[in-house]
Design a protein around this nucleic acid. Sequence first.
DNA 1: GCCGCTA
DNA 2: TAGCGGCAACGCTTC
DNA 3: GAAGCG
Length: 536
Amino acid sequence: FARLGVKQAVIDGEIVVLDDKGISRFAALQDALSQGAGTTLVFYAFDLLYLDGWDLRGVRLDKRKDLLARLLSGHLSGRSAIQYSDHVEGDGMALFDRASELGLEGVISKRTDATYAGGRSTTWMKSKALRIENFVIAGYTASAAAGGIGALGLGEWVDGELFYRGKTGTGFDAAGMANLLRRLEPLRIPDRLEGMPKDMLPVRPTLTARIQYANRTTDNALRHAVFKGLREAELSTPVARKRKRLISDADLAGIWVTNPTRKLFGTSGPTKLDIAVYYAAVGDFMLPHLFNRPVSLFRCPTKSIADCFFQRHAFNGMPPTIKVFEIKNSDDENKSYISVEDAKGYLALAQFGVIEFHAWGTHERHLEKPDRVIFDLDPGEGMEWREIVSAAVHLRGHLEAMGLVPFVKTSGGKGLHIVVPIKPKLGWKQVHAATSRIATQLAATGRDTFVTVMGERNRKRRIFIDFHRNARSATAVAAYSLRARPHLPASTPLAWRDLESIDSPEDLNYSSLPALLTTTGDPWADINEAARDLPA
DNA sequence: GCCGCTA
DNA sequence: TAGCGGCAACGCTTC
DNA sequence: GAAGCG
Ligand SMILES: [Mn+2]
Ligand SMILES: [Mn+2]
């Protein structure tokens, strides 16, 4: 400001932080203000109220901006900390559409002949851009005239509860509608959400749609909602391979649970039966990775998510075919441990409220010689999904250069697991140390991206390479295990070529995964043949 | 979710 | 017999 | 030695 050719001026404007596309991001400004340094603040000047003795508040807007532009001109470059906030006269609608497209927050419109007025007034208005967000499809209205569906009923999860948010009747063509109808019809359920119209047919809220809308009514319903497509994961179809059946029809017929309709968390969402059905559906793919490994179960037998607990020892009432054996702990005491060794025991665990399976990186037959190691990439706050993906690809290259064959799965949360099959030759101490070295080497290639230490605040905006899952008695969530969170995401093995096409790992969950697996099969089917020697 | 104790 | 309470991991790292 | 972490 000191360089401007002026003694005193009052300039109205806004301080912003721009992202790499030059778009103002409020969240980035908050970050910048709380962290103090490191980012570049920019002041956008949009009005001039006073200039060297002249009060300009009574002057027309177009004249004021003209003066402002002349005051600043000659002092600004594209990188200056002060920028002139330019305007467009005339076609407001076209500008608004373009702003929506670019993902801008919206448009401010002002009358060119207006004098300055602080606060709200009729001479200017703010038009928030249309936004696209995800909503659950909670129902639909049937309409023969429209070709099946009249409108989709939309829902939104808030604290584990589903609320009706209105409907949309536009955005789908004939083919899209036929597909939607085919998907929605089998999902019909009896109970309507509060506020849902009487002619709407409620469905299980398992499909998510991208919905564009302008704003919300006072009771939070969407205005001008437009269907922009289903949000779902898409995976590649490999050359057909025969599905090896590990679960027989007799096993399936024997599935039994008490309280099948018990909602796991809160008043809506998945039930105990959903868990049983999911594990029955994925068992053929999951069991090869689970059989005969010491396993810890994460159980949620009651309604309260806070009462969930880990169980690694044998327990009363256990399914009879769950195997029990002894393992010495670090104090040399014998403790009972368990493993799954047939489909019957596996399927029976749903009755005990088992949601998650966590396995050791070894088999009972050679307990002290691990056969799989895992690098758990944990994103710190502020890490984007695509950054985790590129970190995983980076680590893959590193491991392949060592002659190893890495596999990838989602963790079920926000991270990724890189799993490497190894020949069971080294002991736990050596394996843990070897993975520590690999993690440290990787971290050295990007100090700003990676950390290998657990505690430390520095995990913010970094990826923690957690190699400690490779210590004796440590576990990692098993391939295809669900996670005990509201929409039951699954830890999902992926083909490397599919990794980049996933944009939100929560789309891989108890409801979507069984169908996806019937076309993809298990991308880890050949993992055991890929075991190599881990350099000690 | 299950078991064992108590009223 | 209905109801209630106890119970269901662990080892390593970091402070 | 206690607290945090997964
Ligand atoms: Mn993780
Ligand atoms: Mn971790």
